[in-house]
């Protein structure tokens, strides 16, 4: 399978990339790791006239601790997320999620920015970023702006990113020390998108849940932040009736497609089961 012809550009700065995108117009696509875009180009579902490769822009990579936040450059790869000691110490759920994305080869090239920016509801990072309350930094012709992850996803492949804008970094508030976390993903095989998946971040004090945030992957047109389900857990001891109520609230906001991963009803139920498992594992990891 041979992609359609295109012109290749490798700008050295983010400003050059933004200028290029503005001058090339709608027929230009951004190339990051390429592991979502190139398959689409090979099947001709995408045939951009121009590719603007971000790999020559040095300062789009890296993980920095900045005050109470961690900032991750868009071109940081999944492999680098897994290897990061800063992330292992402060937000270990990011590496746990990365390990469940695709396969080793793809994790060397696949980027964090591409995963959050391209709007595929099957991607795993978006629901996690919603659960963590992350903020995306976006650069365009009019300068930079910030978009909350929870406001970013409007539909399948339809996001707050305007044409000509580039997502350059993600700022994530570090959850409190001793927080519990888990990402649970049901998939048919290595490399598959989730049948359903759940991200959970909680804090506990004296056996009582003091905060909870839940994200759900691939059970709707967009990743979901289950705010009502999260709120139902706060102030409880995560006893069975409370967890059951949160599960019901989470399942109620899903709207999965019936596809080769299963009928919609099954996938909704699996979202609940992933959430139950994630809550159990998150609780076992809390240090309070």
């Amino acid at each position: 399978m041979i992609p359609g012809a295109f012109d290749y550009h490798r700008p050295a700065t983010i400003e050059d990339a933004v200028t290029l995108l503005a001058s090339l117009g709608e027929e230009a696509s951004i190339l990051a790791g390429g592991h979502s875009l190139i398959p689409l180009m090979k099947t001709r579902l995408a045939s951009p006239d121009h590719l603007v490769d971000l790999s020559g822009i040095g300062n789009l990579k890296g993980i920095t601790v900045a005050g109470g936040d961690i900032v991750i450059g868009a071109m940081t790869t999944q492999f680098e997320l897994i290897a990061s000691e800063d992330l292992a110490r402060h937000i270990p759920i990011i590496a746990e999620t990365s390990r469940l994305i695709a396969d080793p080869q793809i994790r060397y090239k696949g980027t964090f920015g591409g995963n959050v920016a391209n709007g595929d509801p099957g991607n795993d990072m978006p629901a996690l970023m919603m659960a963590l309350g992350a903020t995306y930094r976006v650069h365009g012709p009019d300068g930079g702006r910030d978009v909350a992850a929870r406001e970013f996803y409007h539909g399948a492949y339809y996001t707050a990113l305007e044409h000509g804008e580039i997502l350059t970094s993600v700022r994530i508030p570090v959850p409190p020390a001793g927080h519990g976390y888990a990402y649970e993903k049901l998939k048919r095989k290595v490399g598959d998108y989730a049948t359903a998946a759940a991200a959970v971040v909680i804090t506990m004090a004296g056996g009582t849940c003091t905060s909870a945030s839940i994200g759900l992957t691939n059970v709707s047109e967009t990743p979901l932040w289950a705010s009502e389900a999260s709120a139902l857990l706060v102030g409880t001891r995560l006893d069975k009736p409370s967890v059951d109520a949160a599960l019901a609230a989470a399942e109620a906001i899903t709207n999965p497609a019936s596809d080769m991963r299963g009928p919609a009803e099954y996938r909704t139920k699996m979202a609940g089961i992933m959430l139950r498992r994630a809550l159990e594992r998150a609780r076992s990891r809390t240090e309070a």
């Binding site: 290749y8 490769d53 080869q105 060397y108």
Partner: peptide
Amino acid sequence: MSVKSCMTFAV
């Protein structure tokens, strides 16, 4: 890095 060369452009 181990790379899938059918998913990478020569450029």
